[in-house]
Design a protein around this nucleic acid. Structure first.
Lengths: 351, 351
DNA sequence: CTGAAAGCGCTAACAG
DNA sequence: CTGTTAGCGCTTTCAG
């Protein structure tokens, strides 16, 4: 066997690169397999060899090359996260919870954000696939159906968070938006409100439509009509727009209870009806938001809202990824819970 | 040459895995090298061959395996991002800008978040190194000096964002916290305020100490003393604590101008002095924050603050990574700019 | 410009 | 339990 390395002075033979398992093997006086096994959980190595290998590795500063490992075992431990609007409190929270949950299972997040005008999800997903990720989690945008098959064919799991289902084979994590919105309607109606309104955004995301529909349907079921206003992107500013749309007209046509499809919208809405229209909350109008972002609990808002538990979403995501295939219930729903704070007046008869 | 594939009907010969360059080569009737060159920008291939390869690749759904590519070329196109408190508006914004900036240069972000009690940065960094990232960007925690050498030895760039410099060889991106804080002091003093205070957190991060020092020194230079209160972690709640610490005592010992080292702190502070102490801003007390997070511009706050431009930070980060070595100025500073909104009263004599 | 051959660093059979 | 032998999928000399 020809060996370029002429025995003496191994040291940090990093010839422009990293220390390899061969370097460690040589120093420890064992084979490369022994080194590999030492760093593979659950492989069988004698304590003696293991000790020597560890020692040599430490001295040399060896680290396994996960790219190489992934190449052969096709377990890269990478999962692609497709997001948008990362700066938004809800997205940031979900990302945070998700990366943490993944890390606990030994998975690492490759984050892709696209805020570009035409979110070319397809191209982005292609790019992600090149990294041989074990799964792709889509938190934003709508992946084309073709990508689902492509992922399946390659053994890459596709997890869709609050996305419409685009085909068979993907795992779907959805919040019970309809249920949550219905709770909001119910709560407002029980408080004796009659003039109901919804402040939503123009972005026709599944979340937006489900929440709006859920509220409207529940209200109508109880005999109320709902005024829905949709403005701009799902942002603080859109909430301002919504407030103006609702309160610029004649005063007695204005609603006395409004459901904002998002806490962000609610913040803009509240600030605007207070500052521009001099309205008090909840004396003049009750407000309910959705998501329970950190700002909802801030003193300036004290917003009553539906909590969409990012913790649970994150758990569901890693569970879908780590689940040993074949589970037939590929879609799991996480419920919403009403967090009562101070923006809705008391229920009738509950003085 | 022995080839298991018996010629007919290549199709999606994905034997449990991905399509390889060999598959494409066979279908296109060329060598694997030709395929490789086709997908390597700037390699020399004839248009004819290139066309055939692309066609075959499309039909087969081929994608280069970046793990394998990275293995040989040792250019993984991956960069590790070490963060904490991703849910915090400032961190989220910085992460967002950074991943976008990286993506524009063909780099992809591997995100590591640790919020755990003892942030074992060292172990985390080791883990990241296993992915053969091209650079590690540390946005949180303080990396041990040893890691710097380790990175250098392996040709991995280390970019420290608002961290204390831990050795030679790292690239350092710092905001001009001292300068910004001094501007805050100056602005408050020019408004005629005499009883100055700083609301900071207990976390002794470089950012916290530099901002506090910057303010105090500038104020003292101008003959004022400053009351500094430090409470909890850098959060909204810590701002509440700060407010109570400052205003619970006798009324005329209380400050009439306070600088919060962070907008988050400022939000908690403002809500608390308004709601718990019935103070008006800026009539009773002027407030300046730092960072210019999105919430600072919300109607409820209209916070005058120092903008720490995450866009610039992100640019500086990728520049450090992509810079062709040898640039001697390994540390770049991004300035702060005062964003005047509505929480500081007018300057004396400026009406 | 193109193909053949030689690995990148690692793991996974397979004997011993 | 250990070492040897093959590759994983790709790029890259090196001839032609």
């Amino acid at each position: 066997m020809i060996n370029e390395n002429n025995g003496h002075s191994v040291q940090q033979m990093s010839r422009g690169g990293f220390i390899t398992s061969a370097d460690v093997a040589e120093r420890a006086g064992v084979s490369r397999s022994a080194v590999s096994r030492t760093f593979t959980p659950g492989a069988s190595v004698s304590p003696e060899v293991k000790r020597k290998v560890i020692a040599a590795a430490d001295e040399l500063g060896y680290r396994v090359n996960r790219l190489a490992r992934g190449l052969i075992s096709s377990r890269s431990n990478l999962v692609g996260l497709v997001c948008a609007n990362l700066e938004t409190p809800f997205s940031a929270g979900l990302l945070s919870r998700t990366t943490s949950a993944l890390a606990q299972r030994g998975l690492h997040a490759l984050v892709f954000e696209f805020n570009g005008s035409p979110p070319d999800v397809r191209a982005e997903l292609q790019r992600i696939l090149e990294f041989r990720v074990e799964a792709i989690v889509v938190m934003s945008g709508s992946p084309p159906p073709s990508i689902v098959d492509e992922c399946m064919a390659n053994g890459v799991k596709l997890v869709l968070v609050n996305r419409p289902v685009v085909g068979h084979g993907s795992y779907n994590i959805v919040s019970d938006d309809q249920g949550g919105a219905a709770m909001a309607a119910d709560r407002l109606i029980r408080a004796g409100h009659k003039r109901l309104a919804v402040v939503a955004s123009e972005s026709g995301t599944p979340t937006q439509v489900r929440r709006t529909m859920g509220f409207v349907e529940e209200a109508e079921r109880k005999g109320f009509t709902v005024d829905v206003t949709r403005n701009g992107a799902t942002s603080y500013d859109a909430g301002r727009l919504g407030a103006r749309a609702l309160f610029s007209g004649s005063r007695d046509a204005a609603p006395d209870a409004v459901f904002c499809t998002t806490d962000l919208l609610a913040a803009g809405f509240m600030d605007t009806i207070r500052n521009e229209f001099g309205l008090r909350i909840p004396e003049d109008v009750s407000v309910i938001g959705y998501d329970d972002i950190p700002q909802a609990s801030w003193g300036a808002y004290q917003l009553t809202t539906l909590k969409q538990c990012t913790q649970d979403l994150a758990q569901a995501i890693v569970k879908a990824i780590r689940n040993d295939e074949h589970s037939e219930d590929r879609t799991s729903t996480v419920g919403a819970v009403l967090v009562e704070r101070a923006t809705v007046r008391a229920k009738l008869g509950s003085l």
